[in-house]
């Protein structure tokens, strides 16, 4: 191929296509952040020793990290995609009301469908319903250098919420953090 189209053209094609691939990654994300619906999710305090790996925080979502098996008809298997319908209530904030392995055809306009993946399915006791541990791709947050400890304290005080943008297909991205009702660390698009 090199002989036919000339090395310079070939080099431009390769660099161009690779740039396009990278550009698409950025575009997909910025589009989601700019146009996705915003939801606020509580994060639970976790053992601070497991909180930091390098300079990112592991976020443990209070309402959606573990699902009740009663939310869906079938029992999902590990690594399966799961669509979780979230509804907003005054006392709980955004909380799951249903889940399914296929994207629900219609949901209430106020509700949001979040796509996640099943990490683990287990039954605590024989007479209890199954529990499903989920992963949404929004579990780690890279912290600006040196601000990790501060964040850790606010999470332990139970004051932090995560602003998540959710796209039409259920894809989600961390848009920012809210501490004590104040929006901090808004993700810049570019």
């Amino acid at each position: 191929m090199l002989n036919r189209i000339g090395p310079l053209t070939a080099v431009i094609i390769v660099a161009g296509l690779q740039t396009l691939a990278l550009g698409y990654m950025v575009w997909e994300r910025t589009n989601l952040l700019a146009n996705g619906r915003e939801i606020l999710l509580d994060v639970a305090p976790i053992d601070p020793r497991s909180l930091f790996r390098g300079d990112y925080v592991i976020l443990n979502y209070r309402t959606i990290a573990q699902l009740d098996g009663a939310l869906l008809q079938e029992t999902p298997i590990e690594d399966q995609n799961l669509y979780v319908t979230l509804q907003r209530s005054a006392e709980q904030g955004w909380a799951p009301v249903a889940a399914s392995v296929t994207k629900p055809a219609r949901v209430n306009a106020e509700d949001v469908v979040l796509k996640g993946r099943v990490d683990h399915v287990w039954r605590p006791h024989a007479d209890q319903p199954t529990r499903i541990r989920m992963h949404y791709g929004i579990e780690s947050y890279f912290v600006p250098e040196g601000e990790g400890l501060e964040l850790e304290k606010t999470i332990r005080a139970g004051e932090m919420k995560v602003i998540v943008a959710v796209g039409e297909s259920g894809e989600s991205a961390i848009k920012g953090l809210e501490i004590a009702g104040r929006r901090v660390y808004d993700e810049p698009l570019l």
Binding site: A15, L22, M25, V26, R29, G137, E139, S140, F142, E187
Partner: peptide, 20 residues
């Protein structure tokens, strides 16, 4: 160049918190 392409994928994933 191929190495940079790989590094760029990882860096963009880090910048935009893409876990996937």
């Amino acid at each position: 160049g191929v190495g940079i392409f790989g590094a760029a994928i990882m860096l963009i994933a880090q910048m935009y918190h893409i876990e996937g």
